[in-house]
Design a protein around this nucleic acid. Structure first.
Length: 209
DNA sequence: AAAACGGGGGC
DNA sequence: GCCCCAGTTTT
């Protein structure tokens, strides 16, 4: 396995995982809705994220309606996503900041995104990738864990994982690798009790788990 | 470095 | 009934 370079290994990972998982496509690229959806997705499964997102945007159409909505109403609409009071407060706060300071638009750079409440590196990168189509790697717990297990990186801090991956993952597969790793992490290479017996990356892994 | 936020679903 | 989930902020 170690006769591959890390770049070659990342390409192989995408190839093999893509035989098992379909890359998820997010049809809605509106930056504000991508941002809100991503905040709602924090520590939350996809089904509950989708439900909360649909609940919110079927009642409030745009950033101005969300900003003016009663906080309790927003809380109730996104309740199923969990952390709903914190998220509702941050979504309302973000909306107000964007209206007051950015003309109602979402900034398209890491620095300004990180200044928004509820937006860390993972969320900011999701916005850059899914709304602005920039090549970046949103490193969540799955991507961090699996990159380490597969020996692509050797890091404790997810930000270091992001910077390491940035060094050798080809731009055109960054989002593919990211999304496939998440699905792989959710379904097979789980945090505890990984399903090594059905692993499509068997030959790339040291199994030092 | 650790705690806090949380309803929903798997087992 | 117990444990975890595409994180971020606060202590």
């Amino acid at each position: 396995m170690s006769d591959y370079s890390k770049e070659e290994k990342s390409l192989l990972i995408v190839e093999k995982l893509n035989e098992v998982f379909d890359v998820r496509v997010f049809e809605d690229k509106d930056p504000y809705r991508v941002l809100v959806r991503t905040i709602l997705s924090q520590r939350t499964r996809d089904e509950n994220t989708d439900q909360a997102t649909n609940n919110l945007f079927s009642k409030y159409k745009d950033i101005y309606e969300v900003a003016d909505a009663p906080t309790e109403d927003v809380e109730e609409l996104i309740r199923c996503s969990g952390f709903y009071r914190v998220k509702a407060g941050r979504i309302k706060e973000v909306s107000r900041i964007l209206i007051d300071q950015y003309g109602g638009e979402v900034p398209n750079n890491m620095k300004e995104l990180l200044e928004l409440p509820g937006v860390g590196r993972k969320t900011a990168n999701c916005v850059l990738v899914y709304a602005f189509e920039e090549p970046a790697i949103p490193v969540d717990t799955h991507v961090h864990r699996i990159s380490n297990r597969l020996g692509l990186v050797n890091t404790k801090d997810p930000e270091d994982t992001e910077k390491e991956l940035d060094n050798f993952v080809p731009e055109d597969i960054k989002i593919l690798l990211n999304d496939l790793m998440v699905q792989f992490g959710q379904n097979i290479c789980k945090p505890i009790s990984p399903q090594c017996e059905i692993c499509p990356l068997d030959e790339l892994c040291d199994k030092n788990i």
